[in-house]
Design a protein around this nucleic acid. Structure first.
Lengths: 134, 134
DNA sequence: CGGAATCCAAGATGATACTG
DNA sequence: CAGTATCATCTTGGATTCCG
């Protein structure tokens, strides 16, 4: 139940058929930036929200309780620049802007959603662990 | 406290990518806090690093380029309090502290690692998308 | 309605020094 | 070695106002 530690040692990559990870740990790796956006406080929630389809700005604002307009705008801009979110502004009055996931965005939010789901599912256990910790 | 725990029911995990998610969007849901730790700038990297087994403080510091002592300490404390990281301090001089993942921590870092791997794998595509955006 | 602009408070982060 | 304490700085996030 804890044999993963000493049995393999720090240096012996046991990621046999897995990806050669390692670059994320380097501070100048561009992955860090993307990871930063995708796992940012609001980025996660926006991605998960958009899994269910297109949303308008105010839809997201309502759905993601507690987010401010500024942060929602910034988060959407970041995710858009990474190619995860598609922004479509219709030239009408009043403005009408639609946000949705790109194919790439759909892939990554799958992973993010799994993470979020796991946490929600395990919240009881986590909270219990926390109490024991104090 | 909240009663969101049983509200969803652990057994009701039927829909593939569409389980009854929704609580994360609420700002007072404890999941938010955990998500915040697990996806924090350094939390992600620490979790991924520990997938490969036990590390000492200085191991992590060396491995995760750019992290400061303070942030590493804080990140480890957060992850420990969530029950993801196990801290074992041996009463010797000089100090010797070992950090490793708990069973729960191993699960969550699996998801986090998948996310990180996906990003590394798709970095070329992402960077290309970025350029087009500008 | 969908933001951008501005001001401000709070927290995150970093560099350095210090200690058990 | 594994931190903590301190101070300075940068970023986040929120509230408000304004505009097309």
């Amino acid at each position: 139940m804890k044999s993963n530690s000493e049995s393999m040692g720090v240096g012996s990559h046991r990621l046999s058929s897995r990806i050669r990870r390692g670059d994320v740990f380097s501070e100048d790796c561009p992955s860090r930036g993307v990871l930063l956006h995708a796992t940012s406080r609001w980025g996660v929630l926006v991605l998960v929200a958009l899994v269910e389809g297109m949303h308008r700005f105010s839809d997201l604002r309502r759905k993601i309780t507690g987010i401010s307009e500024k942060m929602l705008a910034k988060t959407l801009r970041d995710l858009e620049s990474d190619g995860f979110v598609l922004r479509v502004a219709k030239p009408v009055v009043p403005p009408h802007v639609e946000y949705s996931l790109t194919p790439m965005g759909l892939e990554i939010s799958g992973h993010v959603a799994e993470l979020a789901d796991w946490i929600e599912l395990n919240i009881p256990k986590i909270l219990k662990a926390r109490e024991r910790g104090r």
